[in-house]
């Protein structure tokens, strides 16, 4: 009897310790990154976040281009990936016969297993030429969208749009997998209710399945967004790495993650501090996105009976 109680206490002690260790680790990292970046925050103040001057030679640092690039490339990724991923998930869970659905689901999941650097290589050798020779000409000349500021100018291949497209492919399996799960979790009774009232299969999906899965779909999108915000390698390889803010998606840019990865090796002095300050900002942005996401998921959730 005493043995059980002791075992219980040890178990509880170990798990509590493990839980606390995670919290401590997280706090420790956050504190280290913030103190490392502190000299830059002190020197430039809030201007660090809003200034677009990034000039290591003269030790002037503004994070705006990197913040802008992170947000824009992630937004492009979501705009492209969400409809594709939700469409794939609906197809796989509602329409595809098993013999077709299972192999396709496996392949989609496999997209998540491809290393980031391989996406980057594909981006350089396949996507960038395609961007320059087909996608940009198609948008500008065939669809006549060249007048829009976002499709203005010449595409040399690398740039914001290329980064967004790569990110879209990388986050698609996450959104799709989560969406598939939540679609399958919608009770059969909801589908039958719609069918029994004379809904077609499409109406049943639109009215009974998607609304019930909405919070999960939003959750999947947020998971994808979280991945996109922090993705480093592939983006660094295709975004062009220029600390500029341009309306055109064909122009080069930078993201918070890629600027750190690209410049850390040769940084010294205040430059290091500036990169740490960007790291701290990225941490904060990610935190805000996650909190927002939880709130959103809770808000759009539905309850059956």
């Amino acid at each position: 009897m005493g043995g059980v109680a002791v075992g219980d206490r040890i178990y509880r002690g170990v798990t509590t310790l493990a839980g606390l260790a995670i919290v401590a680790l997280l706090l420790y990292i956050a504190v280290e990154v913030f103190t490392g970046g502190w000299p830059v925050f002190r020197k430039f103040g809030l201007g660090f976040l809003t200034s677009s001057a990034w000039d290591p030679v003269h030790d002037v640092y503004g994070a705006a281009p990197a913040i802008f690039g992170t947000l824009v490339s992630s937004a492009i990724a979501l705009v492209i990936a969400t409809p594709l991923a939700v469409g794939t998930a609906v197809f796989l869970s509602e329409l595809a016969p098993r013999w077709l659905g299972q192999p396709i689901a496996f392949l989609v999941d496999l997209l998540a297993a491809i290393p980031s650097v391989v996406y980057g290589l594909w981006g350089i050798f396949v996507l960038e030429p395609m961007m320059r020779d087909s996608i940009a000409p198609f948008l500008q000349n065939t669809l006549h969208l060249g007048g829009l500021p976002i499709f203005d100018g010449v595409s040399y291949g690398p740039g914001m749009l290329a980064a967004g497209i790569i990110l879209a492919i990388m986050i698609l399996p996450y959104i799709s997998a989560v969406t598939r799960e939540v679609l399958m979790a919608v009770p059969r009774s909801q589908r039958e209710a719609a069918f029994a009232l004379g809904a077609t299969r499409w109406e049943m999906i639109r009215d009974a399945v998607i609304p019930g899965a909405k919070s999960g779909i939003v959750g999947g999108i947020v998971l994808g967004l979280g991945r996109a915000l922090g993705e480093t390698m592939a983006v660094t390889m295709v975004i062009g790495n220029a600390p500029t803010i341009s309306a055109s998606l064909f122009a080069s840019g930078y993201t918070m993650a890629s600027i750190i990865a690209n410049e850390f090796a040769e940084a010294a002095g205040l430059h290091i501090s500036a990169l740490l300050a960007i790291g701290a900002t990225l941490l904060a942005v990610t935190l805000v996105v996650n909190v927002l996401a939880r709130w959103l998921v809770a808000r759009v959730g539905v309850r059956y009976t």
Binding site: Q190, E192, A193, A196
Partner: peptide, 15 residues
């Protein structure tokens, strides 16, 4: 199905 309505054992209103 429009002409033949159905009610189930476990009530299943849409949310």
């Amino acid at each position: 199905r429009r002409r033949v309505g159905m009610v189930f054992q476990r009530w299943n209103p849409f949310p």
